[in-house]
Simulated scan of single mutants.
Amino acid sequence: MDGRNLSLLAGAGSAALLIAALGFQAAGYAPCELCILQRWPHVAAAALALLVWLTGRVRPLALLGMVAAGIAMGLAIYHTGVELRLWQGPTHCSGTVGNLATMSPQELMTRLQNAPVVRCDEVAWRFLGLSMAAWNAVFSAGLAVVWGMAAKRAAKG
């Protein structure tokens, strides 16, 4: 497989992780602050793959994709450490309130009091003993390798 196709594969992998995260969210697993933060590098990686497809410039974009996947992996490892209580995470993790500009002060207070708090240090779901954050770290590491292979093959070709 050439560098361009490897880049597209890695970008599709990030898109698949984003779709899975949104699927879990739709199934009732509300994301915490760290979960949402982990999504942004995958958005960047998917966009970089789109740029590879549109421009054909593989090497520089694949290197950026590798960095994005590496950042996603680092954030996921950090989150996993918070879940395992190896280190302290953010002091607050909460859901969004939304529509702040249109709410009265009383509506805002009611919404805030009833908003569920999603903790970053509690695992909502596990598979084979790993949390979603841990799986994200594993998959992100794999995607970083694929991006790196794409950059290497683009340099040779």
Rank of each mutant, 00 (worst) to 15 (best):
N114H: 12
G28N: 04
R57L: 15
L50C: 13
R39D: 05
L34I: 15
T55D: 05
L64V: 08
L143R: 07
Q38E: 09
S131L: 07
L100A: 11
A72L: 07
A124G: 14
M149L: 13
T102Q: 14
V138H: 01
W147D: 05
A141Q: 02
G11Q: 04
L50W: 08
N114I: 07
W147K: 13
L130V: 11
L130M: 14
A15Y: 05
R85I: 06
T96V: 03
Q88R: 08
A76F: 01
M66K: 14
E83Q: 08
L8V: 08
A10C: 02
L51K: 14
A141C: 10
Q25H: 06
I71G: 00
L8R: 08
D121M: 08
L6Q: 01
P60Q: 05
A115W: 13
P116A: 07
G129C: 07
L130W: 00
G11W: 02
A45E: 01
P41M: 12
P105K: 03
G148L: 02
L75C: 04
E33Y: 15
T55Y: 01
G142K: 09
G70L: 14
Q113K: 15
A21T: 07
V82C: 05
S140R: 10
L9G: 13
Q113I: 03
W40L: 02
V117W: 12
A15K: 02
I19V: 15
L9R: 15
E83D: 06
R39H: 00
W135L: 04
A10Q: 05
C120L: 11
P116G: 09
I36Y: 03
M66T: 13
L37C: 06
P105H: 04
A115H: 15
Y78A: 08
N114F: 10
A101T: 13
G65L: 01
G98K: 15
P31Q: 03
P105S: 01
V138T: 06
R119N: 12
A15V: 03
A134V: 09
P90W: 07
P31V: 00
N136F: 00
W53R: 00
G56R: 01
Y78V: 03
T55E: 06
L61G: 06
R39F: 07
L8E: 03
W135M: 08
C93Y: 11
L61I: 00
L143C: 11
L108D: 11
A101I: 13
A26T: 05
A26K: 13
T80V: 06
V97S: 11
